[in-house]
Amino acid sequence: MWTWIHKLGSPPHFYRIATRLTPWFGWAALLLIIAGIYGGLYVAPTDYQQLDGFRIIYVHVPSASLSLFIYVNMALAAAVGLVWRIKLAHAIAAACAPIGASFTFLALATGSIWAKPMWGTWWVWDARLTSELVLLFLYFGFMALRAAIDEENRADRASALLAIIGVINVPIIKYSVDWWNTLHQPATLSKLGKPSMDPDMLIWLLMMLAGFMCFFAAVVLTRARAEVLLRARDQKWVRQALEGR
């Protein structure tokens, strides 16, 4: 187990594995997302209260879940990089940030589009929405900090600290709907044992979530390969890797 983890920490080995896994995740994401969109739009029954407007849930909830999942992954990678000085971990953290920012933007935008017909307003400054907006700024801050520092090691360390400190916002987002009075509805996916959705609706949501997870895996592996190449000092494995493409 430890040998496997140690091996995975080596850039040449990671590059090879990532190159092999990316198409698998990519095709799985494509199939799951197409099936999820079709099921969410045309197969799932209409909600008795929200009518067809509820179908936005099939893009909003997976985006919001991914925005948190990616941040936790980014912070974990940053912490591993900071504590054990593994450069690959910093490369993965750097690869996570733009994808996480795009899913956070998507969660905010689709949430806002959903809010207009349901709440009568595009935006309210309540705990869930505001803390999700703070998450977007954390992603932007992480990327801006990396871009602002020329020296790679310093950029890695400074951005890792920001990512780790920012983790405090994750439980705030998650539990904001329980801790404070908010217009936002309670969690949809945290009660799988006793789901608040009809199984005919839930199945497509889980499919979209699985599709988004695979999508994230494919894109983060692609971005991480680019980061690894940028940081490669030993030219021998780069030559072998590029010839093997």
Binding site: I37, D52, I56, W114, P117
Partner: peptide, 19 residues
């Protein structure tokens, strides 16, 4: 999608564009 067509279509379109 009934009276919510604009909202549903724009959400899904935006998602596809971002992906």
């Amino acid at each position: 999608f009934g009276k919510h067509t604009t909202y549903v279509v724009s959400s899904f379109s935006l998602t596809l564009v971002v992906l």
